[in-house]
Computed example of a mutant assay.
Amino acid sequence: MTTWTIKAETVAGTGTGIDDAMRQYFIEMGRRVLGRAATEAELHSVLTHDPHEDLSPPHGVFLVARSAQDELLGCAGVRMLAGASGTAELKRMFVRPAGRGAGLGRALLLAAEESARALGASRIVCETNTELTEARNLYAKHGYRETEPYEGHGNADHWFAKALG
């Protein structure tokens, strides 16, 4: 069984592995959503137009799951939505193949919800694509319900929301 730790890491700066995590996330999304590898230009564009700097205090958090050998296994970001009182957005939920099948997605999701509560959120929203069936199933299994689109940053097909108790 794979073991891991999940903790908040700083988004700003280098050497933390956050930029590598974002690259891996977008490469996977390109493969799954576009059906092909994302080009370097596409990776640069999406990182520029949907930055992750706001996934840090005081209005956000970036959670990273690492193995006992410090290998990056997954990540999840949370940011408070401007103009949406008490609403946090789940972003960059990603589990690398090496971390799949052992409950890491569930653990990251629960840690993200706890982080959203700590930021003052009473509700959390997220968006995803049709091709990401595992994500949609995970959200549904943990009380997320499909909702109307909100002003996110991606090219989503499905939007979810959950009240945080």
Results as ranks from 00 to 15, higher is better:
150 Y>T: 09
80 M>I: 13
34 L>Y: 10
97 P>S: 03
68 A>G: 07
12 A>C: 04
91 K>T: 10
122 S>P: 06
146 E>K: 08
45 S>G: 05
44 H>P: 00
78 V>D: 11
118 A>C: 01
84 A>R: 13
63 L>C: 06
56 S>D: 11
101 G>A: 06
35 G>D: 03
113 E>F: 03
110 L>Q: 03
68 A>D: 14
75 C>H: 03
60 G>Y: 11
80 M>D: 10
129 N>P: 00
138 L>Y: 05
2 T>I: 14
130 T>Q: 07
124 I>M: 15
122 S>W: 15
36 R>D: 06
6 I>C: 05
20 D>Q: 14
119 L>R: 02
86 G>E: 14
156 A>H: 07
68 A>E: 13
103 G>W: 01
108 L>D: 02
26 F>N: 13
93 M>I: 13
70 D>P: 07
109 L>D: 03
116 A>N: 09
75 C>E: 08
66 R>A: 08
111 A>C: 00
52 H>F: 10
85 S>A: 15
109 L>N: 02
134 E>D: 12
100 R>H: 09
98 A>Y: 12
112 A>C: 02
149 P>M: 02
144 Y>C: 01
6 I>P: 09
144 Y>P: 02
61 V>I: 00
71 E>A: 15
73 L>R: 13
139 Y>D: 03
82 A>N: 07
23 R>A: 11
28 E>R: 04
31 R>W: 06
113 E>P: 00
2 T>W: 12
134 E>R: 02
152 G>S: 13
108 L>Q: 05
67 S>E: 11
14 T>V: 04
151 E>R: 11
127 E>M: 05
80 M>H: 13
135 A>R: 03
120 G>E: 06
73 L>K: 14
41 A>Q: 07
142 H>E: 02
89 E>N: 12
165 G>Y: 13
102 A>I: 09
116 A>Q: 12
37 A>F: 08
138 L>D: 09
85 S>G: 13
134 E>Y: 08
154 G>S: 15
33 V>T: 09
121 A>E: 02
10 T>A: 12
75 C>K: 04
29 M>K: 14
164 L>N: 15
92 R>H: 09
42 E>V: 07
62 F>H: 05
24 Q>I: 05
69 Q>P: 04
85 S>F: 14
87 T>D: 10
69 Q>A: 14
105 G>H: 00
121 A>K: 01
153 H>G: 13
158 H>P: 09
